[in-house]
Write a protein that binds this DNA or RNA. Sequence first.
DNA 1: CACGAAATTAGAATTAATCTAAATCTTGAC
DNA 2: GTCAAGATTTAGATTAATTCTAATTTCGTG
Lengths: 131, 131
Amino acid sequence: MKNALTFLQDHGIQPTAQRVAIAEAVLDNTTHPTAEEILVDAQKRCAIVSRATVYNALKLFVEKGMLRTQIIREGTVVYDPNTQNHHHFIDEESGTIIDIPWDWLKVQGKQNLEEYDIHEYQVILRGRKKR
Amino acid sequence: MKNALTFLQDHGIQPTAQRVAIAEAVLDNTTHPTAEEILVDAQKRCAIVSRATVYNALKLFVEKGMLRTQIIREGTVVYDPNTQNHHHFIDEESGTIIDIPWDWLKVQGKQNLEEYDIHEYQVILRGRKKR
DNA sequence: CACGAAATTAGAATTAATCTAAATCTTGAC
DNA sequence: GTCAAGATTTAGATTAATTCTAATTTCGTG
């Protein structure tokens, strides 16, 4: 369990009651929540938090490298506390987004892309999770 | 240059003046346009086309397998007339989305995903195009 | 404690997309 | 050819995600 207060400080972010609540709502959350979901969760954590503050804080957290956004769901941005390289699997039945460890997959053939300066990449997989 | 009328018929779609204009606007378009961009283009092609009709027609075209949607751009769906498997490169400077041929890249290690039933996947790359 | 900067806020504004219900075409049966 | 049934189109209302605005509150420092 990450300590939200320490985490904010480590990223050079002035901690406030609202930011701590928002950080707590997102830092250990592996479900790839939307801003709206984070708002609901943060409001449960005692602080008075407005929608605008959630959007402001998430934008700041991303700028400071504490979180990343992922463009994976139609119509809405999701937030990802996993800032390491990784891939994503999307369950087509439930919409659940699951992290896939970076070293599970290898992408070969990037020498074909010499016209491109690649900053980052990931594999996006869609299907169903077995059980 | 694909013939829009024939293309509609081949996909079991009743052709109308509006649908032909919309199909022409999207079928040879490799820029991954949004519905709004397709509306503007279709309206130039002489037919009277409303926004609702563009959304209706694009939804139908996707259902019939004539187009695919891609979730690549923040906040909006883009349409892709390339229904073959392929990857995407996104130029971070301009936002331009470029198709990368399927066989330029190989993804290895899918045996690590035996818990998952994979229907499709693609590599999404971000960076800058050199010139 | 006072002051200026930073943070928060409610609500308005914007944008993409969907919905609604009425108007307008087609098409096939006769 | 005529007409009803069904398909298509439409303007505008609605919804949802996000950003903006401008006023208020809180904070850190001297």
